[in-house]
């Protein structure tokens, strides 16, 4: 019965197409994922192309132009130091995006390796590692970050390292759970019965089947990291003052919010759309691939 269903006339063409091509098509069909990834790409493009989009300097003080409202020269007005708000918003994503994506990539990569390995190894190694990771999880991320920044200073590299440290355990949890779901399946058993070593089993059998979990985790984790890093800048421990950064801009301009709402609202909107984009991507991808996200909210 199912033999004839599977080979129904409409499938063969699509069936022989490359798997990557098929997932691409599926991706385009999911509106949520498209909108989300589109927003993220837009932000990446604006951050990369900011110097081409505006000729004004994001950092130079122009005391004469301070605190202007929106106008033809300055579409969104200027801040207390006379800097063009729009220019600063366009440049403002650079710091957050660069640091967040680097940190997320490190955390997800490290977490994936550790998560897969510990799931396959099991036993005492697994128990001990999970205990230690639990202990890291127990410390609030922002506090851990603040401690590290206090001791080591607030350079971008330090922040990337600190965020990696703080978020790796959570990635490990998610990836480990996914890998544990795959590990007892018969095709992994078949590889074990062949006597294959752990690494080839990981690379050939386990990883390809949890790649989608990792992708969703990346999008999800990126949104958390962007929020965390902006919070840090807002508190004055992230980007250093002349740097155009959304978190910093919100913190600098919020006292004058009643007078000059755009100087605060513009970076808020920029930040929120980026995070919405990341969340939509995570949503769309997980729905597309049926990823169980019950471990996510950590």
């Amino acid at each position: 019965m199912s033999e004839s269903n599977r080979n129904s006339p409409s499938t063969p063409n699509r069936a022989t197409a490359h798997p990557a091509g098929r997932s691409m098509r599926a991706l385009l069909r999911s509106r949520t994922a498209c909108v989300g990834l589109g927003l993220v790409l837009l932000h990446l493009a604006v951050a990369a192309l900011a110097p081409l989009l505006t000729s004004a300097s994001p950092t130079a003080n122009v005391p004469d132009d301070a605190l202007l409202g929106p106008g033809s020269d300055h579409w969104l007005g200027t801040d207390a130091l006379g800097r063009d708000v729009l220019t600063r918003v366009l440049y403002g994503g650079q710091y957050a995006l660069a640091v967040s994506f680097a940190a997320t990539a490190c955390a997800v990569a490290l977490g994936t390796v550790l998560g897969c390995a510990t799931a396959l190894k099991g036993g005492r190694t697994d128990g001990a590692l999970m205990r230690v990771l639990d202990a890291v999880l127990a410390i609030p991320p922002i506090l851990a970050l603040l401690v590290v920044v206090t001791v080591l200073g607030a350079g971008p590299l330090v922040i990337v390292l600190a965020v990696t440290l703080v978020y790796t355990p959570q990635v490990v949890r998610v990836v480990r759970a996914a890998a544990l779901g795959v590990a007892p399946l018969d095709y992994v058993t078949a590889a074990r019965a062949r006597g294959e070593r752990t690494l080839p089993i990981l690379l050939r059998e386990v990883l390809p089947n949890i790649v989608h979990v990792v992708a969703v985790e990346f999008a999800m984790r990126a949104s958390w990291v962007v929020l965390l890093i902006s919070s840090l800048s807002f508190l004055g421990f992230g980007a250093d003052p002349p740097t155009p950064d959304w978190g910093l801009m919100i913190s600098e301009n919020r006292t004058a919010m009643v007078v000059l709402p755009w100087a605060t609202l513009a970076p808020i909107i920029a930040l929120a759309t980026l995070v919405v984009g990341l969340n939509l991507s995570a949503d769309g991808l997980s729905r597309l691939w049926n990823v169980d996200r019950s471990e996510e909210a950590s």
């Binding site: 929020l227 902006s230 919070s231 978190g247 919020r254 808020i268 930040l271």
Partner: peptide
């Protein structure tokens, strides 16, 4: 909820200050 998740808590707090207390 999507909006709630996407607005950092410091922004939420700032907006609340603007809206309610000012």
């Amino acid at each position: 909820t999507l909006i709630g998740m996407s607005i950092p808590e410091f922004v939420m707090a700032t907006l609340l200050v603007l809206l309610l207390s000012i």
